[in-house]
């Protein structure tokens, strides 16, 4: 029956319906999960988060026990070490800088990556979630991710003096 035809004061569940407002619910037309999919955060999620937190802390505390943070000689502006390595998370960028013009490798690529990441949810508007059903997005992302990881590993471990190629099992130049 349509809303207009609804008979006024009506008793439902011991409550009186005073009026019905046409329109969409306040949450919009998004679906809210059925209540049997829901569990209490405390304790179910909290316990898991606590375990994850302890696990991560143990890893850090153990690593710190066995591996000391490096400290080289005091900074000397007149002497560039050879090879000169950026921190490992910029190793891919440094590798690119050795291959391309700095305007491309140092500016264009990082800017494009940042803009691409920010724009991603506004470009990929399809409502599909599962990674099997959105091949284009998943493939693109994976290609970039794998490339970036490869470049990072090359820059980190496979580069020696004068940025020449070395085999990490013969010469080790990585710095953490």
């Amino acid at each position: 029956m349509s809303r207009r035809e609804r008979p006024s004061p009506q008793i439902v569940d011991g409550k009186r319906v005073l009026g019905i407002v046409p329109g969409t619910p306040a949450v919009g037309d998004r679906k809210v999960p059925a209540s049997d999919d829901l569990v209490m955060t405390s304790p179910h999620l909290l316990v898991r988060h606590a375990v994850a937190a302890i696990f991560v802390l143990l890893i850090v505390l153990a690593l710190a026990l066995f591996f000391d943070a490096p400290l080289k000689d005091i900074a000397d502006p007149t002497n560039t070490p050879n090879p000169e390595k950026a921190p490992w998370y910029f190793a891919a960028l440094q590798e690119l800088l050795a291959l391309f013009h700095p305007q491309v490798a140092g500016v264009l690529v990082p800017t494009a990556i940042l803009i691409g990441l920010v724009a991603l949810p506004y470009i990929d508007r399809s409502p599909r979630m599962g990674s099997g059903t959105r091949k284009v997005a998943v493939t693109t992302f994976t290609v970039f991710l794998v490339l970036w990881i490869i470049l990072t590993i090359i820059g980190f471990a496979f580069r020696g003096p004068n940025w020449d190629w070395v085999w990490p099992w013969e010469e080790w130049h990585g710095e953490l």
Binding site: P77, T78, N79, T80, P81, N82, P83, E84, Q94, L97, A98, P102, G106, P161, N162, W163, D164
Partner: peptide, 22 residues
């Protein structure tokens, strides 16, 4: 001029060789 490393002069080759990116 690439990325600001100090470029040493290599006496044996008579060239400037940048250690950072070759």
């Amino acid at each position: 001029p690439h990325l600001g490393c100090r470029v040493p002069f290599c006496e044996s080759s008579g060239e400037f060789e940048c250690p950072c990116h070759g």
